[in-house]
C-alpha cells in the first residue's frame, strides 16, 4: 500500500516538474533564446529576426542606463560598500540588472556569431541571386556576405589565377556557361536534427516519398528527424529545434 502511494506521489511530482517548462511567449529574451537555439541547430540559415533584435537591442540600451543609475544611487548611499540598508539594496539591484544584461548580451552575440559562421561556410550559396537566401540576411549580414565572398575570391584567386584558363574559377571546376556551380558548398538539408513539439499535429507525413509513414506529434514530444522533413513545421512554429 505504502509503496503504491509513493509511486503515485512520484508520478504527481514528476508531472508537476515537467510542466514548469512553459515560457511566456511575449518575453523577448525567451524569444531570442528560441531564435538562437533554432539557428544553432538548423543546417541552413533561418530568416533574420529583425523586429526581435531591434526590440532587444533597444532594451539593452535602456537597461544599461538603469544599471548606471542604480550604481550611482548605490554610490551616493554609501560608497557601494553596503553601508546603509538602502545603499545595499541599490547595489543588489544593480548587480541583478547587470547579470541579466550579461545573459542577454551573450545571447545576442551568440546569435550573431552563429549566423556569421553559417554565412562564411555557405558564402557563395548565400549571395547567389537565384535563391532567396540573401533575403534571409540582415543588411549588415548582406554586406558581410558580399565582402566575404570578394575577399575569399581574391585569396583563392592568388593560386587559381596561375591555373590554366577555364580552370581558374572558384565556382565551377571547369568554367562553362549555363552549367551548374559544382564547387559551391551548400547546407545539408538531410542532416538529422532534434526537435521539441510545440503544437499537437495529427498524421504528420515526413517523407513525401513515403506517404504511408506518418507520425502523431504531441506537445512536448522530442523527435529526431531529417531537417528537410520538418522545415515547414519549424517555419510554422509548430516545433523548435533543440
Amino acid at each position: 500500500m505504502a509503496e503504491a502511494s509513493q509511486q503515485d506521489d512520484l508520478a504527481e511530482i514528476l508531472a508537476e516538474a515537467s510542466q514548469q517548462q512553459q515560457q511566456d511567449p511575449t518575453n523577448i529574451v525567451a524569444r531570442l533564446k528560441r531564435a538562437y537555439v533554432n539557428e544553432k541547430n538548423a543546417p541552413e540559415l533561418l530568416p533574420f529576426e529583425h523586429d526581435l533584435l531591434e526590440q532587444v537591442m533597444a532594451k539593452v540600451e535602456d537597461q544599461e542606463l538603469v544599471v548606471q543609475q542604480s550604481r550611482e544611487a548605490a554610490a551616493a548611499a554609501g560608497g557601494g560598500g553596503g553601508g546603509g540598508g538602502g545603499g545595499g539594496m541599490d547595489d543588489l539591484m544593480a548587480h541583478i540588472y547587470q547579470a541579466e544584461l550579461n545573459r542577454v548580451r551573450f545571447l545576442i552575440r551568440a546569435y550573431y556569431r552563429t549566423r556569421l559562421f553559417k554565412i562564411e561556410k555557405y558564402a557563395v550559396h548565400v549571395v547567389k541571386p537565384e535563391t532567396n537566401e540573401f533575403a534571409k540576411l540582415s543588411p549588415q549580414e548582406q554586406k558581410y556576405a558580399t565582402d566575404y565572398v570578394n575577399m575569399l575570391e581574391e585569396h583563392f584567386g592568388s593560386v587559381l589565377g596561375q591555373m590554366p584558363e577555364k580552370y581558374s574559377s572558384m565556382l565551377q571546376q571547369i568554367e562553362e556557361d549555363d552549367a551548374e556551380m559544382d564547387m559551391v558548398p551548400e547546407p545539408n538539408l538531410d542532416k538529422h536534427v532534434f526537435c521539441r513539439v510545440r503544437e499537437d499535429r495529427r498524421d504528420v507525413m515526413f517523407d513525401p516519398n513515403d506517404p504511408d509513414n506518418t507520425m502523431d506529434l504531441d506537445q512536448g514530444d522530442i523527435i529526431m528527424v531529417r531537417y528537410r522533413f520538418i522545415k515547414g513545421l519549424l517555419e510554422d512554429g509548430a516545433l523548435d529545434l533543440i
Binding site: 559544382d182 564547387m183 559551391v184 558548398p185 551548400e186 547546407p187 545539408n188
Partner: peptide
C-alpha cells in the same frame, strides 16, 4: 557539391 572541400 558540398563535399568538394572535404578533406576525407
Amino acid at each position: 557539391m558540398s563535399r568538394y572541400f572535404d578533406i576525407d
